[in-house]
Amino acid sequence: MDNPRLIASFNYFSILFAPVLFPLILLLASGDGLVRRHAKRALAIQLLPAVPLCALLVTTFIAANEVREAAFTGLAPSFGHAGTTVLLTLLYAVLQGAAFVWCTAAGIRALKT
Rank of each mutant, 00 (worst) to 15 (best):
N3S: 11
P4R: 04
R5H: 11
R5P: 00
I7K: 09
I7S: 03
A8C: 05
A8S: 12
S9N: 03
S9A: 14
F13V: 05
S14P: 01
S14K: 00
I15M: 03
L16M: 09
L16S: 05
L16I: 13
L16H: 08
F17I: 08
F17P: 09
A18N: 02
A18H: 04
A18M: 08
L21I: 12
L21C: 02
F22T: 00
P23Y: 00
L24W: 02
I25T: 00
I25S: 01
L26Y: 04
L27K: 04
L27A: 00
L27P: 00
L28K: 06
A29S: 12
S30N: 08
S30L: 05
G31R: 15
G31P: 09
D32L: 06
G33K: 06
R36L: 03
R36E: 04
R37I: 00
K40S: 03
K40R: 11
R41M: 08
R41H: 06
R41V: 07
R41T: 13
A42G: 01
A42K: 00
L43S: 03
L43V: 01
I45V: 14
P49R: 07
A50Y: 07
A50F: 10
A50R: 06
V51H: 09
P52Q: 09
L53E: 06
L53A: 13
L53K: 05
C54W: 12
A55H: 07
V58T: 11
V58A: 15
V58I: 14
T59A: 14
T60M: 04
F61K: 08
F61G: 08
F61Y: 09
I62C: 07
I62L: 12
A63H: 12
E66I: 11
E66W: 11
E66G: 08
V67Y: 13
V67K: 13
R68P: 06
R68G: 08
A71C: 11
T73P: 06
T73R: 12
L75K: 15
L75P: 00
A76V: 15
A76F: 15
S78E: 15
F79K: 11
H81K: 10
A82I: 15
G83N: 13
G83M: 13
T84S: 12
T85A: 12
T85D: 04
L87M: 14
L87W: 13
L88S: 05
L90E: 09
L90M: 12
L90K: 10
L91Y: 07
V94C: 08
V94T: 11
L95E: 06
Q96P: 00
G97R: 06
A98T: 11
A99K: 04
A99E: 03
F100L: 14
F100R: 01
F100K: 00
V101T: 09
V101N: 06
W102K: 11
T104L: 13
T104W: 10
A105K: 12
G107A: 09
G107K: 02
I108G: 09
I108F: 10
R109V: 09
A110D: 07
L111Q: 07
K112H: 10
K112A: 13
K112D: 10
T113D: 10
